[in-house]
Design a protein around this nucleic acid. Sequence first.
DNA 1: AAGTAATGCAACCGCCCGTAG
DNA 2: GCTACGGGCGGTTGCATTACT
Length: 310
Amino acid sequence: MGRAPCCDKASVKKGPWSPEEDAKLKSYIEQHGTGGNWIALPQKIGLKRCGKSCRLRWLNYLRPNIKHGGFSEEEDNIICSLYISIGSRWSIIAAQLPGRTDNDIKNYWNTRLKKKLLGNKQRNKDPNPNRRAGALKQEARKEVNGSNLQPNGYWPDPSMPMYPISQSEHRVSDEHSSIRRLLMKLGGRFSTETQIPYAVPAEQQVYDASAALVAPNSVMNEDLAGSSGYNSTELDDMFCNSVKLEGLDCFYGMGNVMDESNVTSSSDNTNTNANWNEVSPLINYQPMINPSYSSMQSCLFEESVRLGTQ
DNA sequence: AAGTAATGCAACCGCCCGTAG
DNA sequence: GCTACGGGCGGTTGCATTACT
């Protein structure tokens, strides 16, 4: 016997929320709170919606101080760094980015960050947009013909074998670990500023495996120091003593502070699973050895070779 | 201008977990 | 200890918009 559904699916409305529904839900929660029971809430306010749908709408859209879009480079780095360490636990990642929801971050990762790493250019950032579609069609044709040349200048470039698309499509489960390995080698630093708009000469595409060995956290701290104004020793002390770092909220809670349950999760204030103490021991930030687009390309190439030999 | 493909995001689905009875 | 239930989460889908031919 299966579980009883949380609501009568035949009588609840689905699809986009109307402004009226938004207003009803928002005003009720602002006045009365959720009452601790999302399932009962829609009946109370006369909404023909599933309780889960109400919860999602509130958390992802109606809640105050929600930020949409416009991810900064710093946020990119945080997302990538945390993805290295904990994988696709979006609610935990969202908890480190005030105003961001897990859904937002998940979408951002799936639609942009991942594609950046895999070498796809964003449409709206294409320096030569008129050529893009034609180049893509050419790529498709050449893949069919067994060629890997990329005339548009984007990675993978002519000197590097392409990540085999037909195979990768059947390796969805490998993709997560593959990207994680890539990010680990890159040390979590991810910047659009480092992208280069032309093909990387083959002689520059040598990946220095020795340089990608795990480095001490203090090196990561040097990175933080650069952006925060603290030196690495101060950072070490602060982390050890649970001092909240101004401008480094993403690392807030690495000590006992978060245990006091007063840390606001951007995704869900009641998210008891987003326990930083539980997760932080798993996190091993590594430095960006060579934060260039070419090094990312080389890493991914190496990864594709590794997958191809499995 | 019309048609097509690609993209981004809101919303849904289904599973897992914690907890009350 | 068992069961039912609600909350929470990650994965996936559907559709509107945008870019391009």
